[in-house]
Amino acid sequence: MDKILLLAHTQTDGSLPKAAYESLNAALTLAADLGGAAVTVGLIGADVQAAADSIATCGAASILAVSGEDFAASRYSSDTVAVETLVKETAPTLVLAPTSSRFSRCLPGAAYRCDGRIETHITGIEVVDGAVQVQRWYYRQRMVASLSRVQRPWFLVIDSGVFEPWQGAAGSVDVQTLEVAIGDDCQRTKVLGVQTPDSDAQTIRPDAKLLFVAGAGWTKKQTDGQLHIKQAEELILGFINNSKASLGSSKSLVDQSSEGGEVISFMSHLNQVGQTGSTPRHLKGLATCCHGEEPHTVGWRFISERRAISLDPNCGWAQGKADVLYVADAFEVIAKINELLAGS
């Protein structure tokens, strides 16, 4: 009989991220599909009680934790020890966890220590003929595979936005805390803090409904033969603030900074969407001044509704990659949109 361990870590305020509730839902659904496998929850963080209480009624067999100041920060050396302890204590066959920078860093090593195997970026889990089968993408979202494994424990790291978050009443729950000592050899790394982007505005918003992508056309010479970087910045920021969209970019736009070209000051490779950037999940996407070439548009795999504004009627977006292509000057259109959004 399968045993499922759901791992989650707290955020700085002690709460669980949305993706953790999604993975919890995935774990509970999978347990049911497996004919009632037991689900144990393992929490990691400085203080996990509030997090545990928030899922008190989820029906988990038990909630275990590795907590304390050593586990407040996201650090490989201590996180792997925490995960290893939780896994060894519960001896699960399946370990489910949400994708986060913290888990992406530590789970592969932890899986190795537990003599387990790991698959990441899971976008689907099903039970076929009694066996667990998962979906994940290969070659940067070019093709999707369904696969299974014989080895256990099998760590499955689930992409956010794939499952609905678990919704249930909070309550009060007993958390079984496992004592873990962190030796000096695990203290060589110290987390100093978090740097937020240099700009005044936060431009990457994973929870936004809309992804707005700026392509290199914003920083190229416009019809009057001149660069209009300042104006481009105002228009883009204006749109982002008015629409509450998340800001993405094509590679060529942000590459210009490393090549010494004039750039949009508040954008960096962190904004990059595509083959060598991110593959965010948003309901809608609007591309501007971007050719819609394959390496970029693979990053749009999980954008449901896609529209683009480009001066080139033959650009990649027209080739079945967008639902609507507006052949127009994005400078003009975005200015008008900003007026409309500001007025409403």
């Binding site: 195997r117 076929v128 089968q133 290969y138 070019r142 093709m143 999707v144 595979a145 369904s146 696969l147 299974s148 494994r149 014989v150 080895q151 795999r301 896609r306 009627p313 977006w317 027209a318 080739q319 079945g320 990659k321 967008a322 639902d323 609507v324 292509l325 507006y326 052949v327 127009a328």
Partner: peptide
């Protein structure tokens, strides 16, 4: 230890409406 049940290309093409002029 992996066992692949299927590897498929997603359906990529959308019907693009091109708005011009």
């Amino acid at each position: 230890g992996l066992k692949y049940a299927a590897v498929e290309l997603p359906k990529q093409r959308r019907e693009t409406r091109v708005v011009k002029d």
